[in-house]
């Protein structure tokens, strides 16, 4: 194994730009090495650090398995993909960008359902009328299960949705959804409304360290240098 610290950062979009900006403000210049489309990079002047540009959802897996020592990604993705997140990673710093709430949203038309308790109340009737539990479309399967269980709602089925989740109720493939929203505009446009107590997680991008990575002395020292630059 290399002695270097592996830092995993988002490989595209606003999240990548804001991550690079955030490090730049701390005097750390992230740049790609070799091919512009490649995914390897470095921090100028810190040769004990290797940077991997990968998709935000893969970063959680890198941290969970210890392939990366540090990473930048959304708390929502960490909580969804790592069932024992607090055992495996440390949230070092919320970064003030990549804001997104994970929420439970029902059709606005359900004027009799404004809380999770009221959702639970209609479960039994729904089943009697339609011969099935109501369906929740989401890509946040684990997050949904945990939240619904904590709220005492158990009579539902999850339908895994990998895109355009907010369209599922109108399309008839699900009855309600759990999804991320930043302004709520997309939900409203799809005739959906967030339940009064339906905000599961207020997520933003975080700087995160893996507890299960191989923390060689070299990696530890590189971490210190990054932390110092960030004023942590």
């Amino acid at each position: 194994m290399t002695e270097k610290l592996l830092l995993a950062v988002p490989s595209k979009g606003r999240l990548m730009e804001q991550t690079i900006e955030m490090f730049a403000k701390a005097g750390l210049t992230l740049r790609k090495t070799g091919n512009e489309r490649g995914y390897r990079g470095e921090i100028a002047g810190l040769d004990t650090v290797e940077v991997a540009f990968i998709s935000a959802s893969e970063i959680a897996w890198y941290l969970k398995t210890g392939r990366a020592h540090m990473g930048v990604t959304g708390e929502d993705l960490i909580r969804e993909q790592i069932s024992d997140a607090d055992e495996r990673v440390t949230f070092l710093k919320p970064l003030g960008f990549g804001h997104a709430d994970v929420v439970v949203a029902v059709p606005d038309y359900w004027i009799d359902v404004r809380t999770m308790a009221e959702l639970d109340e209609i479960a039994a009737t729904f089943r009697r009328e339609h011969g099935r539990w109501f369906r929740v479309a989401t890509k946040y399967i684990n997050t949904t299960r945990r939240f619904f269980a904590a709220k005492g709602v158990i009579d539902y089925r999850i339908i895994e949705s990998l895109g355009a989740t907010e369209g599922a109720p109108a399309a008839g493939t699900a009855d309600l959804i759990v999804d991320i929203t930043s302004t709520g505009a997309t939900l409203a446009a799809n005739g959906l409304r967030i339940l009064d107590d339906g905000v599961i997680l207020k997520s933003e991008a975080n700087l995160i360290a893996s507890k299960v990575a191989n923390w060689s002395p070299g990696a530890r020292q590189a971490e210190n240098e990054i932390m110092q630059a960030l004023g942590l």
């Binding site: 059709p107 038309y109 359900w110 729904f126 009328e129 009855d175 005739g191």
Partner: peptide, 13 residues
């Protein structure tokens, strides 16, 4: 200005 959608009927609501 709310549209009915999905499986639940007005009767159920």
């Amino acid at each position: 200005g709310i549209e009915a959608m999905g499986t639940r009927s007005v009767t159920e609501v």
